[in-house]
Design a protein around this nucleic acid. Sequence first.
DNA 1: CTAATACATGTCAATATTTACATGTTGTAC
DNA 2: GTACAACATGTAAATATTGACATGTATTAG
Lengths: 204, 204
Amino acid sequence: MKAKCLGKVAAGKMRTLKYAILGLINRKAMTGYDLMKEFTIDLVNFWHAQHSQLYPELKKLTNEGLITFETVLQGEKLEKKLYSITDEGKKVFLSWLAKQDPLEPTPKDIFRLKAYFIESMRKEDILKQFHYQLDQRKEKLVKLEATMRQHPYAKNIADIISPLYGDYIVLKGAIMRERTNIDWLTQCIKEIEKAKKNCFYGSS
Amino acid sequence: MKAKCLGKVAAGKMRTLKYAILGLINRKAMTGYDLMKEFTIDLVNFWHAQHSQLYPELKKLTNEGLITFETVLQGEKLEKKLYSITDEGKKVFLSWLAKQDPLEPTPKDIFRLKAYFIESMRKEDILKQFHYQLDQRKEKLVKLEATMRQHPYAKNIADIISPLYGDYIVLKGAIMRERTNIDWLTQCIKEIEKAKKNCFYGSS
DNA sequence: CTAATACATGTCAATATTTACATGTTGTAC
DNA sequence: GTACAACATGTAAATATTGACATGTATTAG
């Protein structure tokens, strides 16, 4: 009889959403709704979440004693919960932040999966697919660049130790990533068009 | 009483693994083990899966009539299942491949999440974290470039309509992505070091 | 001949995430 | 005053994914 790993099993126990929430609440007290706005505006470029995942997690973190809330009245009847981080929560968050992680598995990407199967694609569809993806990526880049132009940090480089700097570097990273996506798609399209002309391209 | 959406609910019903498997088996008949090798070597750069997800999915696809298998003996006793795609499976796969998808949500990235919270990081840890990530990214890039050098398509550009071309473009894409990651990290490190010298950097 | 590695196939329990369902209030523009 | 958008908080059911558990055979290097 082998020893093996006793105690609770821990399949996929990264709890990253937990730390994302702790980090945000650590900046300042927020309601679930405020948090959702962060997740759909700033964090959307590297960690997205739905409110259906957020609210249960807030309840869990409260039970774990990492955050607390006070009920605040908005108008006459509307109760909202303003969450703050506890000392324990702060400790747990900072310990996570300082941990050095191994490289994550490469993110999944349906378009690249389809590109991998390019030889099975109908010839008329190949360029259509690449152009469609390219257009969407370009649109995304335009939005990211607009956000960057409005970003206070981009105009006025000051202290690294400000929430603005974190904001800025991840936005910068998102723009660089999108530009590379566009470069890759553009190169692919060029190669495919060249092959088409040179008849390296089946019966088309 | 509102009408709403009757019938079966469909939360997160992308079934991408299904199509990845169909695409691979469409190339040639394979066992589950063979498929796993594909998932851990080629597809790892855009769609990874564990065998614990693969085998149940193969069973499901068989039940759905999209693939079939014949049992093959390896040696004296070892039975393996060699899967082939059915006509229906081929149809379903090609229809998925031709579909134009909206942009996927940006992939999740724990390191960028931590970078976003950089202002909460202990000053001694900031550069340590960025260098650690950079080293790992560089190591990954070296491996990808080695794979590229050995890649038959890179050596001898020929017909676009070959599984090799799909292989090649996604590998190319992975290399470009990794180079951009490295550029981003390098820029961040430079900025942080500059800020440190200029004393925009708290008490260090 | 024997030990290690690769081949080969599965299940289980937990976490993670998505989409739809569900409800009600407040502020604002017309 | 009323409609609409934004504010505000949840639950339910399904899919998606992971890590551990579980088992056995075939090949190859020493």
